[in-house]
Design a protein around this nucleic acid. Sequence first.
RNA 1: GUCCCCGUAGCCCAAUCGGCAGCAGGCAAUGGACUCAAAAUCCAUACAGUGUGGGUUCGAAUCCCACCGGGGACACCA
Length: 939
Amino acid sequence: MMTMSESDTPPFRYTAAMAGEIEPRWQRHWAENGTFHAPNPSGDLADPSHPRAGAPKLHVQDMFPYPSGAGLHVGHPLGYIGTDCYTRFKRMAGFNVLHPMGFDAFGLPAEQYAVQTGTHPRTTTEANVARYRAQLSRLGLAYDDRRSFATTDPDYYRWTQWIFLQIFNSWYDPQARTARPIDDLIAAFESGERQPKDGAWATMSAVQRREVIDSYRLAYVSEAPVNWCPGLGTVLANEEVTPDGRSERGNYPVFQRSLKQWMMRITEYGDRLLADLDGLDWPDKVKLMQRNWIGRSSGAHVDFRVDAAGDAVISVFTTRPDTLFGATYMVLAPEHDLVDGIVPQAWPQGTQPSWTAGHVTPVEAVTAYREEAAAKTEQERTAESKVKTGVFTGAYAINPVNGARIPVFIADYVLAGYGTGAIMAVPGQDERDWDFAEVFDLPIIRTVQAPDGFAGAFTGDGPAINSDWLNGKSVTEAKAAMIGWLEEHGHGRGATTYRLRDWLFSRQRYWGEPFPIVYDETGMPVALPESMLPVVLPDVDDFSPRTFDADDADSEPETPLSRKKDWVEVELDLGDGPRRYTRETNTMPQWAGSCWYELRYLDPHNDKVLVDPENEAYWMGPRGAGDCGGVDLYVGGVEHAVLHLLYARFWHKVLHDLGHVSSSEPFRKLFNQGYIQAYAFRDARGVVVPAEEVVERDGAYYYGEQQVTREYGKMGKSLKNVVTPDEMCEQYGADTFRVYEMAMGPLDVSRPWETRAVVGSQRFLQRVWRLVVDEESGAVRVTDEPLDPKVRKTLHRVIDAVRGEMEELRFNTAIAKLIELTNALTPLAVTSREAVEPLVLMISPFAPHMAEELWRKLGHPETLAYAEFPVADPAQLVAESVTYPVQVNGKVRGRISVAPDTGDADVRAAALAEVGEALSGREPKKVIVVPGRLVSVVV
RNA sequence: GUCCCCGUAGCCCAAUCGGCAGCAGGCAAUGGACUCAAAAUCCAUACAGUGUGGGUUCGAAUCCCACCGGGGACACCA
């Protein structure tokens, strides 16, 4: 059967087998000729003889993958194919295109696999990278392979460590709003230009001075509450913890523990990270997510003296200082440091029974409530958010504006981690405070005039009331006036707070970048000099951090590197003779390598600097005053909206401040591609069955004789619905696969995978092939006869449309236009070169191998990668005539055909003549002529 | 609970500034050509009135309001 069907296929038809021969051949050709090498202005990749040397540049980048052991499925390369089509188009349109690809190869999965199997993570990682490279190159992606790297290459992470040193060796100058070398700060202390926060520089010991300096560094060691995840044996950044208090990776419980860890002072950049979002061409959704994450709010700090508790002062942050006259009670977070100091021995006179939760003394009440709160998970806390809980501390505070004595509560609706962990409660203007006040029967004073009949907390604008000297002012005016008053009387000051926290930067893992840091006998960190980079990750026998029972909150982290004593204990000469040091044994988080990789692509082999300034300025520099510069197009999934994109912006700004890069943002334009999803099927027991073997009958789905249920979601091994690009290349060829992925919908929309629909793209390519090649003889059928004038107009209309669609990444509609053109050419008796050559060029971004092959057959010895993308002849775009539908009262009653340049009045006259019968003598009330569109007559 | 995005033939998707819903395109379906037959290929055909209900307009898939359905973000952030 097979041999019969094969023998019946015309010998020169474009089939999967044919594609399987053509594609690797052209891939070799491109590789051998360095077809996709992009020339740099300077350095080892400079090439003045390159056809695009000195041309306008375009830097397009994909979010590089973490090479997992499972390999790629058809969803992964969607964005890569998209950028490949775009950059191939732009290269033909005259740009010097940089389109590189690398691998984000440090991280947990390789390490966890190593722990299970004893295989070194480097072995696994290298094998996975090789597999990914093979899968990607089979797709014909036009990367400049000289610029590829993995973050695990010592040549690469040398510079990750170098950047860490830059950050460690700088501080943030809030006046200049910039990072500066730490030496500037030391000089300022030496000269007396600046004073340390506490103490006099001149009288400090060397160790004290180092402590002061270390407290200013942008990378610093801090003993602070962190997210400790015993199940993973490591600490995590806030961004890596889910809202329900679990690890994003592995879904283990996370606990707050005070531990000594490396932090990065990203909070200093909060306002710039926020403000500079405005200038970026990013999806609004992503900008909004970053704004929410940074969470800037402005208002004031207000100090409340605690009555009869020595000199205790509760400082609160509020965005509504204008409502201070309505503050009728205060709330501290249960964990707040001040709580113990203010709780009196006994309940004061007049304590309401409902405030004490039935406890005999305030101490008991507070202790019990704290235990209750601590026992609740984050999830329980928020799930019960509708009912406010809390307990009176027994203490009163004094409202600074009117001297009112107001009770102080603890309640878990106030979060220890935000603001000062304490609030002034203004039930009249805050819904949460209102709810709490109702539960505890606390007074409510409105300080903003609410509309008549309004019930509940009023958060809108209105004139101030019950507020003495603020009365009558609007919210905005009252805020400003109150801040002025607070500052004048020493009761507070205007303030801006951020939800953003400093970035926890150390991990107790093996498979990550070692810190270029050692500790001396004081226990304080010492930066290694650049000459000692890279600090190479040593081999160890045991890759695992000590992990614990997932719920053991009191466990202590232990790093894998700490067990390698001969590496940890070193003798080094750091300028003052050989001395003993201890190495830092934490490693950097997985984000480190992806924080700056866009820069290394620009100058990947440079061993003198991270990137030559000339190369950086060319590929990423600002395009004028006030421009941020950056990658011209960055494509990836929306899941990195906060983590990666925020960290990368932060590092980029530090490098910018220190003068290492001219751009102030890493990614000028961001595009989120959609996901390819897939159907999965389960049998009656809920067990997943292989999707490939399920058949559809009469609207139901069957696996064998069993009926199964269909669900829609991700493609994955556990859902038994994975389709790989390798299978698609085997069955159809890479070009068909590429065309299908680009044709199935807009790049930013998620859609279901449907293998049986791929054949449509194959048929399309077959028709194009057939236009050029005789399927029986293999001869080229193209002639030099001029094209039929009508088809010529179609050709130019398509060229014009395709250019527009390509610029906007609308590949699905571009391909539809190309199919339209192909279908117009197919029935013609002769195929003329005039149409076929533009078609081949236009199809080449999508089906580059087939296009190269046809281009060669058409008599061109050179690659088409640098051929000019077709340009439409404007003369061919004007229609000979325009047909106007003529509507009478909204219904089409006739059509007129006129020359395109006919004036409105003539169109109107012709239209009225055409529908004279339908009007039957009635006088039109109104005649609307939409030029080039239609005529609408109203009677 | 709040905010954002999206609902167009059986399915994936087109439709400039509100202007003839599809000679945008594809899958599947049906019929035909080719074939002893089938596959492949080619040709042709039909199928929705735009989630629902209102409104604005000469004219609404497009703008406004409400509701329904799907997806996403945030969820005590003072």
